[in-house]
Amino acid sequence: MATKEELACVYAALILHDDKIAITKDAIQAILTAANVKVPAYLPVLFAKMLANKNIEDLLFSGGAVAAPAPVAAAASSEPSHKDDKKKGDDKKKKEEEKKKVEEEEEQDLGGLFDF
């Protein structure tokens, strides 16, 4: 869960984005100062670095999930080796097992507020 100070930096970044102003540490700090919000000095720096060269629209519409960078194309080969095929299959199985585990955890009954 985010702290109040982190949320203040997020809101400042969103204000800057909405006004089409570059999201820099100084701009974030200026908004925080104007709002009379005190945060540790490192937070505006971290947020500015984190959001540098990012498409804020994509971040907003991704629901918080940041896309991984595109994989670099592997060296071209005429035929994939059988070892690579097996590894891909193993990776796919792992991902499916993890997905099932997460779904099971989500379905787990944690009890209700009024259960007696």
Rank of each mutant, 00 (worst) to 15 (best):
V37F: 03
L43K: 14
T33M: 03
K25L: 02
I15Q: 02
L16V: 08
L14C: 10
L43R: 07
D19Q: 15
L46I: 07
P40L: 12
Y11F: 14
K4T: 06
A12S: 12
Y11R: 13
I23W: 07
H17S: 12
A22C: 03
P44Y: 09
A41C: 11
P44I: 04
D19H: 15
I28M: 01
A27F: 08
L32V: 08
I15H: 02
I28R: 02
A12V: 05
A12W: 11
P40V: 08
I23T: 02
I28V: 06
V45E: 10
D19K: 15
A8S: 04
A34Q: 06
A12I: 06
A13Q: 03
A13G: 04
A13R: 01
Q29D: 15
D18G: 14
V37S: 00
I21W: 03
F47G: 13
Q29H: 06
K25S: 13
I15A: 07
L32K: 11
K25T: 04
K20L: 05
K4I: 11
A35I: 00
D18H: 11
K20S: 07
L43I: 01
A35N: 14
A12F: 09
D18N: 13
I15T: 01
I21L: 13
I31R: 15
A34L: 05
K38H: 04
V39D: 05
N36P: 00
A35P: 00
V45G: 00
I23R: 00
P40T: 09
E5N: 10
I28F: 03
V10F: 15
Y11S: 07
